[in-house]
């Protein structure tokens, strides 16, 4: 199946060692395993009620992780994603408070997020600043913006938003359905449209894409902007969920969202990637956290487990290779 005849000798081709299983398939197995482990170790966390309260968190993390995934596919990283979430939560609450109009508030928030994403994209592609440095820097600036918008106080969320976030459709949280829709939309655009293919090509090799007539700059800038829109959606939903916009809202999402991308299997080398795998990994990470908490451990242990999962997810193929010799 994976052999090719060259010079009359069978030759295995690299990259297809696991049969038809792609590198993005493992996270599904991990998901099944974590629910199985939960059922044994912390049965309380797999009861319907517990699942329904876990899923909104997973859904918000999935949206943010999807945004981070496309940026990582462009050999980037957005360390300002937490700050963009925070600013978005604050802007939607503040504009809604001052104008009384939720649609206007949403429009203003997405416009602000797109602007922040554009700045990131321009810093990375036009000024050619290493993504981690560029977005750490813009993240600092956006944290300043958050201070300005909030004046140091939290703002209560618009009632309509809070209501939507807590809505259930057919017994499922609306937020979960929305999350599945936006993740599926992104996956479909990447896979089934020319735009998505060119986006993937630019991520795989900006120089080759340029030589083929697709200069990388607009794709890079666009990717950071789209990523920021997803962070904004996460920030808006989180504000609705906790019923208030705070200055620290996004901080807790930065590392877990990157972790979800890593666990999902999207490499940092560009090109390949899967937003669906990242979203599944977000569910996995959230349930893992619930399980650890239910077993009586505190937040520090949760951090430790997350760190261990990241290392395992990345090092496993390497360790397996070493073990095989």
């Amino acid at each position: 199946m994976t052999t090719d005849t060259i010079n009359g000798k069978p030759r295995r081709l690299p990259g297809l060692k696991f049969g038809s299983m792609s590198e993005f398939g493992w996270v599904w197995i991990a998901l099944v395993l974590v629910f199985a482990a939960s059922a044994v170790l912390a049965p309380g966390t797999v009861r319907p009620g517990a699942l329904l309260s876990m899923l909104p968190f997973a859904a918000m993390l999935a949206i943010v992780s999807a945004g981070q995934t496309v940026i990582i596919q462009q050999r980037g990283l957005d360390m300002s994603s937490g700050a963009i979430m925070t600013v978005s939560g604050l802007v939607v609450a503040r504009v809604a408070l001052e104008t009384g109009s939720l649609p206007l508030a949403l429009l203003a928030t997405f416009a602000a997020a797109a602007a922040m994403g554009l700045v990131n994209g321009i810093a990375v592609s036009v000024f050619r600043i290493t993504p981690i440095v560029a977005t750490l820097a813009t993240g600092a600036v956006y944290a300043g913006v958050a201070r300005h918008v909030s004046n140091g106080n939290s703002i209560s969320a618009p009632a309509a938003l809070a209501e939507f976030v807590h809505l259930k459709i057919a017994g499922l949280p609306a937020i979960l359905i929305l999350s599945a829709l936006v993740v599926a939309l992104m996956a479909a655009v990447i896979r089934f449209t020319p735009l998505g293919r060119r986006f993937t090509a630019v991520g795989a090799s900006p120089a080759a894409a340029t030589a083929a007539g697709f200069p990388s700059m607009p794709y890079l800038v666009g990717t950071y902007a789209v990523g920021a829109l997803y962070f904004a959606l996460g920030g808006i939903l989180f504000t609705g969920f906790i019923n208030s916009a705070t200055i620290t809202a996004g901080n807790d999402y930065l590392l877990p969202s990157i972790a979800a991308v890593v666990v999902g299997g999207t490499p940092f080398t560009g090109g390949k990637g899967s937003v669906v795998a990242s979203a599944v990994a977000a569910v996995f990470m959230t349930q893992l956290g619930q399980m650890v908490l239910a077993m009586g451990a505190g937040t520090p242990v949760q951090y430790l487990v997350q760190a261990a999962v990241i290392v395992l997810a990345l090092a496993a193929p390497r360790l397996a290779k070493l073990a095989r010799g």
Partner: peptide, 23 residues
């Protein structure tokens, strides 16, 4: 030896080190 991207590797230790301090 494990060839993790330095950013991800140290992100993992970032979380782990913070956890140990808090413990």
């Amino acid at each position: 030896p494990l060839k993790l991207h330095p950013m991800v590797a140290t992100l993992a230790t970032y979380m782990a080190v913070q956890a140990v301090s808090l413990l």
